[in-house]
Design a binder for these strands. Structure first.
Lengths: 160, 160
DNA sequence: GGAGGGTTACTCGGATAGATCGTGTCCGAGTCCAAGGGG
DNA sequence: CCCCTTGGACTCGGACACGATCTATCCGAGTAACCCTCC
């Protein structure tokens, strides 16, 4: 039960892409350099975001990634599902249907597994909280805590 | 991001152990037979629960596992942390401290990473929901949906 | 000067290895029960 | 009849393979910009 680090990378990149929006597409190499990440692997992590409609990619010279929509329309849930896939973390294997319960009539399984229900509802709380957090809010918090950072990052990239 | 199936196994076993409490310890072989699981692997999954103080184990003939406390004192969170470990699913690697941010003064990192904060708070919601669910509640729901099941299971084990 | 074509350099995207973690199995140390013998 | 010893079988616990997923890298198809030539 460990979340791919690509989720963190993607979130950071989205925030950065928003800051760099005026400069056109940003290539994987530039993004990776900003965070000290392996460029090729970062590229691989960003690809599912393109498929999910969070980013758009353009090839060729001066190509790179760009936000497909505003930060307010992107939630942490979007990023997670794009990279981790749509499946839930807890997967009920219905082990109760074997052994002791194998001889029971099928009607006994009409009701869902109580454990599965409890685990699902808890996980739903998590996903609900993730879906409630837009990247716009996250960025607002970040800029609130470090007001000059945005300009500093833009300058660093401009001089590169 | 996939939860070990051992979590589901452990939860089911705890409920079963509660039903079989009067019969003394239940061995791994009997537990596994009840769910059609590989006995040795189930044993391996239950061991951390003993270390966590959820179960007690006794060796030798007529040995096996037994609940260390009442179902009301065991939460889904206990089981999860016992098997998955205490670490959180989302681990912030502080990638913001490399590249662009490498030259910034240390004071810039006094404030926590905004992404980390948002992810953590969402995950906390999940853990809070898990900690609020005791196995006693889960079992109550299960027995409510299938009233005769408890007796049926006890009989199956008694005849074995 | 402007337009068109070719070159070039750079981009993403997917196909290909290595590392880490989850899954499954096996055997040994320890222990409890039971039976048998002696008092 | 009761107690102690001895044997045995069964248990958990950890050490040992296998497989899948995550991590990391490489190379190729494609494309947009640029430059040079020609009109």
């Amino acid at each position: 039960m460990k979340i791919n680090e690509g989720v963190e990378w993607a979130a950071h990149c989205c925030l950065l892409l928003n800051w760099m929006e005026a400069d056109g597409p940003v290539s994987t190499a530039r993004l990776a350099a900003g965070y000290g990440l392996p460029p090729a692997y970062l590229n691989k992590q960003l690809q599912p975001l393109v498929k999910a409609g969070v980013l758009t990619s353009t090839a060729g010279k001066k190509g790179g990634f760009r936000l497909a929509k505003g930060l307010g329309d992107i939630t942490l849930m979007d990023i997670l599902t794009a990279i981790e896939g749509p499946d839930e973390a807890f997967k009920c294997a219905e082990i109760r249907q074997a052994g002791v319960w194998a001889d029971l009539p099928a009607s006994a399984f009409r009701a869902p597994c109580a454990i599965d229900t409890a685990m699902r509802s808890a996980e739903l709380e998590w996903r609900r909280a993730l879906a409630a957090q837009t990247l716009a809010q996250v960025q607002a918090n970040a800029e609130l805590q470090a007001p000059g950072l945005r300009r500093q990052v833009q300058d660093w990239y401009a001089a590169r």
